[in-house]
Every structure is written in structure tokens, then in C-alpha cells.
Design a binder for these strands. Sequence first.
DNA 1: CTGTTAGCGCTTTCAG
DNA 2: CTGAAAGCGCTAACAG
Lengths: 338, 338
Amino acid sequence: MPEKLPTIKEIAKRLNISPSSVSRALHNHPSIGISTKEKVVSLAKELGYEPNQTAIFFQKRKTFTIGVILPKLSEAFFSEAISGIEDFAAKHKYTVLVGQSHNNFEKEKKIIETMKDHRVDGIIVSVAKNTFQYSHFEALKKYNIPVVFFDCIPDTPNIDAVECDMIDGTVKAINFLIKKKHKVIGFINGPAKLPASQQRLQGYKIAMQKNRLKFDPQLIVNTDLTPAGTEQAMFELLAYKRKPSAIVAFNDYVTLDAVQYARSKGIIVNRDIFFVSYANLPVNHYMAYPPLASIEQFPYEQGEKAMEILLNIIQEKTMQPVKAIIEPQLMLNNQLVL
Amino acid sequence: MPEKLPTIKEIAKRLNISPSSVSRALHNHPSIGISTKEKVVSLAKELGYEPNQTAIFFQKRKTFTIGVILPKLSEAFFSEAISGIEDFAAKHKYTVLVGQSHNNFEKEKKIIETMKDHRVDGIIVSVAKNTFQYSHFEALKKYNIPVVFFDCIPDTPNIDAVECDMIDGTVKAINFLIKKKHKVIGFINGPAKLPASQQRLQGYKIAMQKNRLKFDPQLIVNTDLTPAGTEQAMFELLAYKRKPSAIVAFNDYVTLDAVQYARSKGIIVNRDIFFVSYANLPVNHYMAYPPLASIEQFPYEQGEKAMEILLNIIQEKTMQPVKAIIEPQLMLNNQLVL
DNA sequence: CTGTTAGCGCTTTCAG
DNA sequence: CTGAAAGCGCTAACAG
């Protein structure tokens, strides 16, 4: 039987006092008599009174809810990130509304609409891979809904964002290989127009230059991230006359496919050729032919940080746009690699 | 500049009509003059009017929000599940509020409180592993918040739930091994008090009996799901005089650890011993020593189904408790194994 | 077809 | 210290 829930009014009536007194009693307001306060509190407990938050949200224009928009919840990177967001939010009595864009621009716009309707207090987003126009985010300013970006970030100025410096990450990876005496280092990059790919490429060039190794464009190939795409990329790399002794791959999934391909060609991984990639998937630990190392991007921490920044904006502790940089680390089985 | 958002009142004032007329115009209410309607609609568009959902939520006692409580978002099973929930919800204009219990009973209770405060229209939950008392869910009835369980389900009668029949799944696994001529089949089960473990054990017994093989309790060992626990379990199994030729493991993660252990003992997996497990992790595809097959539980579909049931309850299409059964399948690299 | 009125539950001046 | 009253923005019952 869903009984009618007790309200402040109800309590007031039973106690023959005004609703405002009840409200005061329940909020430790200074100007309230100790005796009335006790009466109210005890009756409230007896009736199992609980404030109707929707009324309060409405009245206060604040929902203690933040929206999170991600391409896909089931990708490990994002589920780690949202885990960090949710944990941080929960600590501060905020709840999290989620939406998946599936990397679809239209879907992303729709989610923003819904979240705006729900009057979320702020939004954290990793932009869809095929979003190249950001007016739907700009529009949120009008509603006073702050946005913090992470992972996939628009190139607009003056935004708040958490970012993992993949240039730095790539430099670390290359330096590591060079220290291991590799001189011909192949690179299986992702789709060229992805910022994530561009950053990696930039890091590659910087690292090669710093180490006084010539940059050879033929050592750079691209995959569309499908197994077939990666196989093709591997094929090109292995066919090149300056065959690389080591390969940096866009991420661990790409490495998995690349290793598979190499093995099918009779190449012995970690003897004939070596890999380094990005993501630091736990499963690397179990692979028979794992990469030498993988660049950890700390998605959980990125999520926490994004939530922290958002909270600061909401609570007006921050006025200037903030860009937090998370430093990626080269890892091997959860140990740092230097 | 966060300008003040236009309201129905504002539109009414500018047009010298009543707010109710504006409301009617905006809702295609039958009794509204075509001309006023046009005026309202055009002004609304001009001002960029958008209804304040929090006011509507409050007024209608409905938030179009459903709460999802999961142990951990970053576990693949759960992130797949919530992905299914969110997709289904979005199709029906519902949004999803998430909370992670981290398998902690107290945390679970707190999340329920928060969700109740937010007046979610319903809740979907996979119960925390150390929750053995369900009054916090019962309490939701009072607030008229329906609950649909999935995956980890309380043993209370008359609940709505989506369940994957792991007895059936285990029978399939054992039948498969027996068909492959295995007679001594070890079983690394999870913690004994987990319903998931109990179901698997029951399935094991049933399958052995049906195949007229004697049930040997020494072939059943338990792991606390840590690598160390699994190693210990493997150790016991391999030390037993009736050494199993095949092993069914609680899930693919356990298999990974078990395989690792076996290899460290010089045992050649998929020659000296064979594995079957549960979860059908995509990464099995890349393992050098993968299980012969793994039981797919279709978490995405479980999520969708749970959401569907919840929606039916909310829309009062269903009155009787529903228990949906998802049939697990024995898979190998995303192919069915018969 | 349209306006008036009341009210969802709570907070917050403003008087007293 | 307490009560009355207004109002957040919207909907809906009731009159006209």
C-alpha cells in the first residue's frame, strides 16, 4: 500500500503550528524554540518524514545531479572513468546521470537536451568521435550549466578540461624503446583525424628528433582500429625494407591484433619484434606475448579530477577555466617502467 | 551571461493571455484557438522557451528517471548491463541515475536513500555480494518505487527479476565436456555462500547425474576469486589422485589465473588439461591457452530486459511479479558451441 | 475557447 | 521565537 507520504504541512497541522516553524525545526534554524523543535523532530521521525527533494530541487533551482556523457559505457576506459566520477560525486552528495553517445553527434545533442531538461547542475563529457562542432555545448552557458571535458576534448579556447598528455606519453614510450637499443621504431597509429592520433604522432616526432633519429614517414601506418585494419597496417610495416624492431601501437587492443597477426606469420613476439602500446589493460598480465609496456592514462583519476573541477565551478570556487593535465605513465603489470 | 529563462508566465504576460492558455497551446490541448496557439508557439520559439522539467517533475510526481545500482561499473559484466539499460531507457525518454555499491551493504543502503530522495520512478539493481538482508528494498514499496533485480537476486518471493539460468549454463558446460570424453571433471567454484556458486554447483550435480557419472565431492574446490585463492584451488585439484582431465572454473578471470598456475607447473593447457568457464570475455580470443568455451550470460540483454520489465511496471502494464529467464549459451570466440 | 483558482512541498522574507 | 504569505513554474479542475 503506497500510503501518502507525510509532508511538512501534515506535521504542522498535527502540532498546531505553522509549516514554516516545522521547516525551521528540521533545519536547525537559530530562531526556533527548543521545545517546539523537539516536538517536531520526534513527530517527524515517528511519521517517517522525509523531505521531498523534487520540491526542494524545484524551489532551489539545484538538483545535486550532474550529467555524464560518454561514447560507450562498456569500454573499460570509460567505465573506469565514470567509476571515478561517481565515487567522487557520491562523497559530495551528488548523483550522476549517465548517457551514451555511441560516438554519434545527434545522440550527443539529444542527451544534452535531456540533461538540460533535468536541470543537472553540471556536465562532464568525453566528446563523441565524430563531433566536430560544439555549439550544443556552448548553448549550456545560457542555462548556467558548466561543462568539464575529459579524454576527447574540443579545440575551443577557454574550456575546463582534464587531459592526459599523450604527447608526453608517446615520448616516454619511444625513449624507453630507444634506451633498449631500438633504432627503427614502427608506429601503428589510429585514424588520422582523431586528436588522439595527432598527439601520438607529434610525440613520436618529438622523441625521434630529441634522440637524433631520423623521422621516417614510412614507419608510420594507420589502422581504423578493426582487426583487418590492424592486419593491413602490420603487413605494410613488415614489408618495408627498414623493418622495425619495435612497434608502438595505438592501444592494447591494436597490439592484441597485431601480435595475433605477427604470430600467424611465424614472427616471434618479444624476440623478433617488440611492442609498446597504450591503455595498460589488466589482461596484458595474462598474455603469452604481451607488450613490453603500456601507457597508463589513469581513467579513474581523470574522472575524479573532472568531477572535482566541476564541483569547484558549481560552488563558485573557481572562476578561471582550468585545464588539468594527468601525466601518463609507462607501466608493465602495474609497475612503473622507467 | 546566464539570462533568466523564459517561463510560461512570461509568455502569457507578453501576449496578454493567461498562463493556462499558454500551457494548453504548448501541449496541443484540444480546447485552444488556432490563432492564440500560433502566437504562443511562435513567441515561445523566439524566446527559446523550454519547460522547466523540475517544476513538472514536482507537479506530476514523476521524474522519468530510473536508478541503477551496481557493485562496480568498471566490471565488464556490469558496464555491459548498464549499457543495455541506458539504451533501452533512452529510447523511452527515461534517464538513468547510477550508483556503485562496491559490494558494500551500507553503501547500497545509502544509494537507495539518495535515489528515493531523487524520487526515481523505479530502480534496477544487482545486489551487493555481502547483502543478506533486504529490508531496504522492501521499504521502497512504501514510496511506490518498483524494483527490478538482475544478476544478484535476493531469495525473497514475489520479486521482479531477470535471471540467467546458471544451472542450465553449467549443465551445458558439463555436457559439452562429457561429449568430449572427459569423465573426471574438476570444478573451481566461487565462494560457497554466493547464490551464483550454489547454482553452478547444483548444475554440476545435475549434469553428472544425468550422465550417470558419480559425483565426487573432492573434485569440487573453491576460490575466493583472488589469484592466490585460485592457485590454492588448482593445487588441491591437481594433487588429487583422480586428477581431472578438464576443469570448469567460476569465470574467465579464474580461468586466467588457473591457466597461469598450470603453466607454471609445466602443465600444457589444451593438451594435458582443458578448461571451460563463464563470462565469455572477448579477450579469450587472444589468449594463447584459452578455455575451450565460456558461458555467455548476455549482460547487455539482461539490462535491456530489466529495463523493459521496469517500464511495464511503471506504466502499469504488468501487475504480477515477473521473472525473466535469460538462457546462457556456451560460446567459443563468439560462436555457439553445441 | 479562455481565464481564474488552487495546489504540488518547501523555503524565505516580513511582520508581529 | 512564531505565523502568515508569497512564490518557485507548471498543470488541471472549474467556470464562464
